[in-house]
Design a protein around this nucleic acid. Sequence first.
DNA 1: GATGAATGAGGCTTCATTCAT
DNA 2: GATGAATGAAGCCTCATTCAT
Lengths: 208, 208, 208, 208
Amino acid sequence: MRKVDHDSRREEVASVASRLIAEKGLEALTTRALAKELGCSIGVLSHYFNSKEEIVMAAFKWADQRIDQRMQNAIAELDEISLDYFIPMITAGLPLDEASDREWRVRFNLYHYCLTKGGKGLKEQIEKISQFRVLMDEFIRTLQKKGEVRRDIDPELITKMAFDMVMGAAQNLLMVPMPERQSHAAYLFAIVEKLRPVKTPTITAVPA
Amino acid sequence: MRKVDHDSRREEVASVASRLIAEKGLEALTTRALAKELGCSIGVLSHYFNSKEEIVMAAFKWADQRIDQRMQNAIAELDEISLDYFIPMITAGLPLDEASDREWRVRFNLYHYCLTKGGKGLKEQIEKISQFRVLMDEFIRTLQKKGEVRRDIDPELITKMAFDMVMGAAQNLLMVPMPERQSHAAYLFAIVEKLRPVKTPTITAVPA
Amino acid sequence: MRKVDHDSRREEVASVASRLIAEKGLEALTTRALAKELGCSIGVLSHYFNSKEEIVMAAFKWADQRIDQRMQNAIAELDEISLDYFIPMITAGLPLDEASDREWRVRFNLYHYCLTKGGKGLKEQIEKISQFRVLMDEFIRTLQKKGEVRRDIDPELITKMAFDMVMGAAQNLLMVPMPERQSHAAYLFAIVEKLRPVKTPTITAVPA
Amino acid sequence: MRKVDHDSRREEVASVASRLIAEKGLEALTTRALAKELGCSIGVLSHYFNSKEEIVMAAFKWADQRIDQRMQNAIAELDEISLDYFIPMITAGLPLDEASDREWRVRFNLYHYCLTKGGKGLKEQIEKISQFRVLMDEFIRTLQKKGEVRRDIDPELITKMAFDMVMGAAQNLLMVPMPERQSHAAYLFAIVEKLRPVKTPTITAVPA
DNA sequence: GATGAATGAGGCTTCATTCAT
DNA sequence: GATGAATGAAGCCTCATTCAT
């Protein structure tokens, strides 16, 4: 069988495993349940993965990357860097529909799995987030240079705030009924707007 | 009858179970491991709990309440409501030491357990958070009336922001090495300060 | 505590144990359930019985003897031996009310327990039934001598038939709804009547 | 796939389980013991049965049907309905050898299991026996029409008697040493003979 | 390559019994 | 004498994994 088939099969397994984790919890991801959901036999899994842990990891990675991809896609068509990136990126990144809801559930499973097991996995996650922080930081600085973001705020503070708010919003949104999520997340846009520099920085006092 | 305080024994079990969840993960909380950690036989657990699920729930509740208690204790000695409540409360509430680190790990297990199982447990969590939001909202409004918080910010926005930031900070802090956590969380204090009304809104421009 | 108290307590335990066996099955007779039903603590049972098997045996014996007693009581007031003994004895012996229903259920448990375990218990049961057969046989012979039972039937045949029919009727009645049991058992009386000698053995052919 | 006939494997399990019940009692039918007796691992049982109760039921059914089959086989070669059916049928039906002894022990376990648990199982047993009674009744009536059975006896009485006697004989035979069983059961044949109409009902008095 | 039967460790729970109080 | 907490074996069941077909 060609490599592409092998890979696409692996992804299919990861995808279904991810859905099982999201819907029933990590402990419900058994080889039996997975094979049943995939419509194949138990033994076939061992052709694509050496152990169950590999499957779990693949499911984690799949969901994690889907969220990242979703965010990248949201700004892919935008041509120039601007503060306007934030809104679609946040919208795309947060669990505001069923698909991203599932992915976030899996991502949290990933986080707590790594936290518990420690080791390489945890290091990878930390590293990944750290790199993302650097990117964000640079992004803010660029926007500040371009005059799209107020210069009197420490970029690092914005970055930290953004990371905590998005993570917390994602967590909290999972417990909010789907119809109310949009409105619940809307306040984030207001905060983004507060980052814009005051248009007429003349004589008047600007409260915030 | 052997002299045993039934409630304190239950709490001891819940406490140890909570520690196991935090350190090894929920799936490592087996009756064998728990009994071993408690230094007693497996059968003894059934004297205090009717099922393992009850133990899990007790462990969840124990850790959850410990965080709440920690925050309440932090402001217990303060005599008058003021914005100064926030700093010690946040400091007490976030996972900035080993004990609260364990409790937050368990709390996240609780959240994701409820999210997966749904049912009454999820409803309870949502209700609890909802009530806390109302309290927070009233708190902000009171501070605004007292002139301790700027009146040009929607209280609801502050509440939402606070909830998401604390939740996200807690999550993110868990992945930060303990020594760096204090400094990582410090930015929150800066944000709290930004809520204070501008002392002298006279001639000078105050950017934010 | 005086012996009479000790004995009456033992009987109470046996009685309640017997009821549990009848209603829920032998495997539902646990020390916990028994103590609960008795309204006493688990430990108290060991004052009266050395092991659970002793309790089971006592329960078996209690129910077994109650059936025997019931039958003896039924003919206690009758002054002279006659075929009329049979009807009240059968009526008293069979599971025609709730109490004797329970006792028979226990008795069958006893039989199958002995059959399985073998040993002394089985020997005792066989011995007991054997003695009863002898009594019955003598009883029939006496009635035949008195002319109350036809002399052309082998007494042993009557005895065997009676033992099998009563045992089988008891077993089958347990599966018949209580209201229908009386009518179901009534045919036995007709058979008893057939044992009576033909009153006028003259010229006419008497088929049977 | 390993070559295994699923149904024959199920029957094998049921058969061995049945033997264990007969020899050691229902409570000795543990998964461990059963697996050991089958010469396989414990886990294999779950391939063929969803629970232990299913195994118990299969064992019950297996033994129950074996008795029925044994009786049917006994009259299979007989070409015409006649009273002569009875003797081989009874002989085949009663526990007169080791195999049918085991099956009857299991059947009694089945009866008392159903009696205790009630529910659908009990209803099924009652229904089965009820249908068998109807068949027997029709059989008797047919024989009466053919002149093979005396017409002065109520068919229903014969049926009831037969059912109780067979059930009781089976029960009592279980407690009789194997060598004596044949002679113990022989009286039943005498009773069957009494059902035959008197050949020459002429002048002579026939007492019975 | 695909199948699913087989394995046996380990999950939770229940049990009769013991014994400190 | 009475209590019920403690014990640990053994109950049933589920699991990831292996391997003959």
